[in-house]
Computed example of a mutant assay.
Amino acid sequence: MKRNLNCPCGETIVGSDEDDLVEKTKAHLAANHPGHDYSRDEILFIAY
């Protein structure tokens, strides 16, 4: 199960599970990178 993602901006996003990680990543993208929206599969592809 993937729970971590390093955003290219330098922020590390950590979730308690994959659903939480995707939710937190989407919130980070909306707040910090408007216009960059990725699917669950795309987020999990770059997560570890």
Rank of each mutant, 00 (worst) to 15 (best):
Y38M: 07
I43N: 02
K24N: 03
L29E: 08
S16K: 14
D20I: 06
I13W: 06
E42Q: 13
A47M: 09
I43H: 00
E18G: 03
G10A: 05
A27R: 15
S16A: 14
D17V: 05
C9P: 06
H33W: 01
D41V: 10
R40C: 04
N4E: 10
H33Y: 00
D37M: 14
H33F: 00
R40A: 04
I13T: 06
G10F: 01
D19G: 12
E18K: 01
P8K: 15
R3H: 11
E42S: 11
Y48G: 12
G10K: 01
K24P: 01
Y38N: 03
D20P: 07
D41N: 14
L5V: 13
D20Q: 09
R3Q: 10
N32D: 12
H36F: 09
D17I: 08
V22P: 06
D17E: 08
S39M: 02
N32Q: 14
Y48I: 12
K26G: 11
V22R: 00
A31K: 11
T12R: 14
V14D: 05
N32F: 04
S39A: 04
Y48W: 14
E42R: 08
A30R: 15
D37Y: 08
E18Q: 10
N6S: 14
T12N: 06
R40T: 04
L44V: 07
N4V: 15
Y48R: 08
I13S: 02
E42W: 09
L44C: 08
D19S: 11
M1V: 13
L21A: 03
H33L: 03
H36A: 14
E23V: 07
E11K: 10
F45I: 09
E18V: 05
N32K: 14
G15R: 00
E18C: 02
N6V: 09
L44P: 02
F45G: 07
G15Q: 03
C9W: 06
A30L: 11
T25I: 05
G15C: 03
L5N: 00
V22A: 03
G15L: 02
G35K: 07
L44M: 10
N4W: 15
V14E: 10
I13V: 06
E42M: 07
C9R: 09
L5A: 02
H36V: 07
N6T: 11
R3V: 09
L5R: 01
C7V: 03
L44R: 11
I46F: 10
L21E: 00
L21V: 05
R40S: 03
D41Q: 15
P8I: 09
V14N: 12
E18M: 09
C9F: 08
K26Q: 15
H33S: 08
N6Q: 15
C7M: 13
N32P: 12
I43F: 02
K26P: 12
E42T: 04
G15P: 00
I43M: 08
G10V: 00
A30E: 07
H33P: 07
A27D: 00
N6H: 12
N4K: 15
G35P: 05
E23F: 14
H33V: 01
D19E: 11
L29A: 11
N6E: 12
E42L: 05
M1G: 13
